[in-house]
């Protein structure tokens, strides 16, 4: 109304915040991590491109470990219950998290999914929680879920250029599983180069060369999980999940 003296003009102030754009996700992830640690649950977040063999690796892992320890699985997908059904067929409780379009899981969905899994467990203690992320080698690397270890899979048919093309997935993971290595003779895939590139970006990365078909490397991968369960796992998370 008053254009003369500016007496009704709104004022502004600048607030210095300096906080992460993903603060809310990071806070819920920290809550999840604390919750898992209090309950003695080792939480593993599996990320990879679609079709790299995350569910198959889980099936093989379950075959080896299910009589030894208690396993639960959160299955992330855009749609369908297909993966959770594959896990349940192995006699392991699984909750399907469908994002309805989002290309990654976020920590709030893990929080809800875990409570729903606890409901299925009816008081039984879990040793390992596997979280299978939505198949995507880009976006899941931005979102900490509260895992103790992030595992990235790269399969032989995808090509050995993947570490260089998807550096954030490599940098934020603690374990790299090379999968479908029984196909090595049919593809131009250089295992040594893949390892070298990945280690240049993340020198602490543990690498397992595996094939779910022949069983190659599955024992070493399972031994890694066992060692985490017995040695305590609070310090196992390196730079992951920024």
């Amino acid at each position: 109304m008053c254009n003369t003296c500016g007496c009704d003009q709104k004022e502004s102030k600048t607030v210095a915040v300096h906080q992460s754009l993903l603060k809310a996700n990071e806070e819920t992830a920290a809550d999840n991590r604390r919750h898992f640690e209090e309950k003695g649950i080792f939480a593993v977040n599996l990320i990879s491109s679609p079709g790299s063999g995350k569910t198959t690796l889980l099936e093989k892992t379950i075959d080896v470990l299910k009589d030894e320890i208690s396993i639960g699985v959160l299955e992330g997908d855009i749609e369908t219950e297909l993966d959770a059904e594959r896990i349940r067929a192995k006699g392991v409780p699984a909750v399907q998290l469908t994002t309805g379009g989002a290309c990654h899981l976020e920590s709030s969905l893990i929080h809800k999914g875990f409570h729903s899994l606890e409901h299925q467990l009816e008081g039984k203690k879990l040793d390992i929680l596997f979280i299978e992320n939505v198949g995507n080698l880009v976006c899941p690397s931005f979102f900490d879920l509260g895992e103790q270890v992030r595992v990235v899979l790269i399969s032989v048919p995808e090509g050995h250029d993947k570490p260089l093309k998807y550096p954030k997935a490599i940098r934020t993971s603690q374990v790299l599983v090379l999968s479908k290595c029984d196909l090595i003779d049919h593809f131009d895939f250089d295992i040594d180069k893949t390892k070298q590139d990945a280690l240049a970006m993340n020198p602490l990365l543990k690498i397992y060369v595996t094939s779910a078909t022949t069983g190659e490397g599955i024992d070493q991968w399972v031994e890694f999980l066992r060692s985490k369960l017995t040695s305590g796992f609070k310090e196992s998370r390196g730079e992951g999940g920024e």
Binding site: K13, V15, H18, L21
Partner: peptide, 13 residues
């Protein structure tokens, strides 16, 4: 080089 931050916000008050 890894930043993904809100540095500051100007608000109407």
């Amino acid at each position: 080089g890894e930043e993904q931050h809100i540095a500051n916000v100007e608000l109407e008050v």
